[in-house]
Design a binder for these strands. Structure first.
Lengths: 186, 186
DNA sequence: GACGATGCGGAGCGAGCGTTCCGGTTGTCA
DNA sequence: TGACAACCGGAACGCTCGCTCCGCATCGTC
């Protein structure tokens, strides 16, 4: 990883940058040849650096998810846990909805559970924010980190379906607050 | 459509039944050859009756959507509009989450807006239920029929992502109620 | 029962895509 | 500078899948 030839390291960076751009626009659906062309290299070169298209995709997504985790850690010490949580929730959805790669990654991660530990930082940091908000009485207690991920996936689907009505996320946020929760009839 | 040969009509029915079953399980991703095999006919026969795989899919989905519309019409005269609306909302999501075809159809209908008029019955009947519930003060007023469809798509994504935690739909339902809606800071 | 029209089956075509392979090129180090 | 190993490009392979085509079977009718 370190003792690479100079041109190899350069090409690797070009591939990563091109993949980040292409995946962000079209998600996993973008053909690998397009990425290679965008990077100005051949398809073979891509496979020299990444064992498969999937691996390249995960590399790109993981980088981004790490940023999300970092943001969550910064907010973990905010004075108002409820506000911090909602801010983060809305921000993640807004960011992710602009990045098809994240959408695809989160949406499909139901299956292989996001590859053993990958993105666990993100999961843990978000869970921390959640439990603080719950302890402060700002968010309903019958929700855990996995539920939250599911809700984010759902909000992303909403955003993709109706990009113009941004206020729909607020419906979910209101549902997350700690109020009523009664009136469960069916 | 009526003056078909007896065997042709029989085959058409077999194809439709097979498509309904196959699409329900795997959604649009199922290969057409599988449907043909399941129906016990050749691929050519499928194309004799439906111009494309997409057309066959829409035929299947539309039939199902019509049932949804009918259910909505029955509930339109219920004495408690709020309860009727919530019941319907939950029921549609539960039914649809068991049927991959409906999920795919709703999720992709953002693009071609569900083919000019197709499924309008469903849309209209659901909008009726919504506005009644809003008039009764049971549902927040800043929501229209399209928003509702988007929320359903979102809930379906949640269900697919986390099938075990059924109570997440209740978060959305609580968010739809007519209470607080204040505290909008960002 | 025979004949024309209609319908059927499934091999085959073409396009798209992930992946591999190999002849040629380029960086690196003595 | 020369030589070797590492690396590169992109043609080609194999596979999937939607769709078409055509020789053959089947139905309805006289």
């Amino acid at each position: 990883m370190e003792k690479m030839r100079a041109d190899a390291r350069r090409n690797r960076a070009k591939v990563l940058a091109a993949a980040e751009e292409a995946f962000a626009v079209d998600g996993l659906a973008v053909p690998l040849d397009d990425i290679a062309r965008l990077a100005g290299v051949g398809a073979g070169t891509v496979y020299r650096h990444f064992p498969s298209k999937e691996a390249l995709f995960q590399a790109v997504v993981l980088e981004r998810l790490e940023q999300f985790a970092e943001e969550a850690r910064e907010l973990a010490t905010a004075e108002d846990p409820g506000e911090a949580f909602v801010d983060y929730f809305v921000r993640v959805i807004r960011q992710a909805s602009l990045n098809r790669a994240i959408c695809d990654a989160l949406a499909q991660s139901s299956g292989h559970a996001f590859k053993a530990g990958a993105g666990d930082d993100f999961r843990a940091a978000m869970a921390e924010l959640l439990s603080r908000a719950q302890a402060a009485g700002a968010v309903r207690p019958d929700i855990d980190g996995d539920d939250l991920r599911a809700l984010i996936v759902g909000c992303l689907a909403v955003e993709r379906y109706a990009p113009e009505s941004r206020h729909l996320v607020r419906v979910v946020v209101d549902g997350l607050r700690a109020h009523q929760m009664a009136g469960n009839k069916s």
